[in-house]
Nucleic acid binder design. Structure first.
Lengths: 132, 132
DNA sequence: ACCCCTTTCTACAGCCACTAGAGGATTTAG
DNA sequence: CTAAATCCTCTAGTGGCTGTAGAAAGGGGT
């Protein structure tokens, strides 16, 4: 399998695959005589794992750890679950902050600014107000 | 007022102020004989506006537009409210996506992974599953 | 006058996770 | 045989800063 096929099998861009190789997330594959990368089914699995992790918001470093752990099947899996639950806590925190932000923006918009001039625009005034 | 005082008056880092000047968000200030930047109260206002906008998640480009509009007091303010409501819609969209992500992560964690080996770690398996 | 510490200056590199483009080689289809 | 697609390497750009190096200037105490 060449890089393009791997890309479409995993809905990844070709450049991204080469990038993952460069930063060491994917192993350097064998090459054809002319220098083209060749991949196997295990590479599809590994790349799918990486893409799913990214979709779930794991950082490259977290993925590196998860992959390293997954490569040691006999090992205790508590480290992996730790990474995941820490990530969940992060997401919940961001969710709370974003919710607060939404409320702030929504109340700004709700104040309304019915076709007046910039000089008395309430939205601008709301932004300009120092942090409460 | 020198740059350090402006920084502490707006809880901004000195380097960030210089960065905002470089990208044109803040005007180039007057300098002392020895080349130090000097600021006035209007710079405090402008920088506070910028910092509040960032805190609300507006991009630098959006802030540039908002500032340009705010500088024309007689102008109709519909453009400014448009920027704000578009931003609110963006935030709500991200909020939805992040909520879905949290649910996915939470159900992963809920599956539990009680001290087993990596080989049968459910979290790892959940991540590896192709996109449903 | 001297010393030292802090602030300020410029200019540049680094962060994250890619993405895009130049410019060339090779492969495949018609 | 040619044209299009795919591949290669290398470099630079994105956003929003942050951090560093090395130098100059300012202020306070002895």
């Amino acid at each position: 399998m060449q890089i393009g096929e791997l890309a479409s099998a995993t809905t990844t861009k070709v450049t991204t695959i080469r990038f993952y190789e460069e930063i060491g997330l994917l192993r350097r594959p064998a090459r054809t005589a002319s220098g083209r990368r060749t991949y196997g089914l295990s590479d599809v699995d590994r790349l799918n794992f990486i893409r799913n992790s990214r979709r779930l918001g794991f950082s490259i470093d977290e993925i590196r750890s998860l992959l390293a752990l997954a490569d040691q099947p006999e090992r205790d899996c508590s480290e992996a679950t730790d990474i995941a639950s820490r990530h969940l806590a992060d997401v919940e925190e961001r969710l709370r902050q974003l919710g607060a932000l939404r409320d702030e923006l929504a109340s700004m918009s709700a104040a309304g600014c019915c076709a007046k001039t910039m000089a008395e625009c309430r939205v601008i005034q709301a932004i300009a107000r120092p942090v409460a």
